[in-house]
Design a protein around this nucleic acid. Structure first.
Lengths: 195, 195
DNA sequence: CTATGCCGTTAACATAGGTTAATGACATTA
DNA sequence: TAATGTCATTAACCTATGTTAACGGCATAG
């Protein structure tokens, strides 16, 4: 897992060896059972993570108790309620493991101290934030321009494996529709149900 | 305008005087007429801007020619098709002045050279990107959780002055609905039309 | 002043998607 | 095996929003 983590880091920025070693001293590894939460709505995040193995989803719950999936995060991606963490306020959403997962965690305060030490960390942050921003921008575009069927096709293209790993009602909640509506879209598209 | 620009920069990061002076050598000021475009879909952005006075909107056009407003940007904010600019690819959306405006422009290549010189520029970028990300995240949340009326109320809260400065069909296209639907929502809310 | 065009409203109708409930497939547990 | 629970599908009905078209107010050009 550490290797995958370092590979991902290196792809995002150049890391001086001394800095890399300091970072490695901050990491902890944990297992997360399926259904377990990395963060719950209302909690102030004190750490962020990196997924070595497994799958997570971020989701909101509305005033009626309905769940809306903000995103899916598979192995090789970072894990955090970022806005809440940097503003030191409660998270608006939940992060839940959809599969038994192995993750790395890093304490945010320790990370902040480290990142103040060397400019490479800001380069890293810029790279991460640019990626995240571009992704959100694209999602905004799809909500503005596309109907449910087109958003579903786009989801299938972007995450070809997830339609096998994730329950349909969660995909529906990611698309902003009900499971019933997704089922209708699938029938219209000629997709057939496989368990 | 230069003063406002510097004030905004200082609010985002600490600028060594030498760096500030170099930045000021890069800026150009321009007037943009109402209806004129800062960037058009399909163009590769070569510069970004800062709005000293006026108002802009970012908008997509779909395959049917319908316009969808991505966002409104008033004085004191930055102006760019950021994802396209950093990836050196054509912009997916247009940026248009809704009012006669005064802006500062900065050439992206020159900015890149400057920003490589000193870590303060990455700190600045991180601050900007965190803001932009948080804003997009919030918009995603509203599309997922809220119906059109709730999104309209939220728009009115976030941009109290814009309902006076912006035509309703543009507000509708920002909310992801038609002008007809917005008019219905307004009637239901008891809002009365003032020109 | 008059003609024109743009905009917001309204109405009538069409459609996508929400809601509820029933059903069958499958997996889990007693 | 039987009982239970979860999930995707389907149907019937409902509601929000899209589409088209008519209308009136207002600004602007002539």
């Amino acid at each position: 897992m550490k290797e995958r983590f370092l590979k991902t880091m290196h792809a995002l920025t150049e890391l001086p060896l001394a800095q890399e070693e300091k970072l490695l001293k901050l990491i902890r590894t944990t297992s997360v059972a399926r259904g377990e939460h990395f963060i719950r709505e209302g909690q102030v995040p004190r750490q962020f993570g990196f997924i070595g193995k497994g799958l997570f989803r971020y989701y909101y719950v509305d005033y009626n108790g309905n769940e809306f999936t903000k995103g899916f995060f598979p192995e090789g991606t970072f894990l955090s309620s970022y806005s809440a963490m940097i503003q030191n306020r409660p998270s608006y959403f939940n992060i839940e493991a959809l599969e038994p997962s192995e993750i790395i965690t890093i304490d945010f305060q320790q990370w902040k101290s480290l990142s103040a030490e060397h400019p490479c960390w800001n380069t890293f942050l810029v790279a991460i934030l640019e990626k995240a921003f571009t992704k959100k921008e694209n999602r905004e575009r799809e909500f503005l321009l596309f109907d449910a069927e087109t958003r579903y096709r786009s989801f299938l293209e972007e995450y070809p494996d997830l339609s096998q790993r994730v329950k349909q009602h969660m995909i529906a909640s990611y698309l902003g529709i009900t499971p019933v509506a997704l089922s209708r879209v699938r029938r219209k598209m000629g997709v057939t149900h496989t368990t």
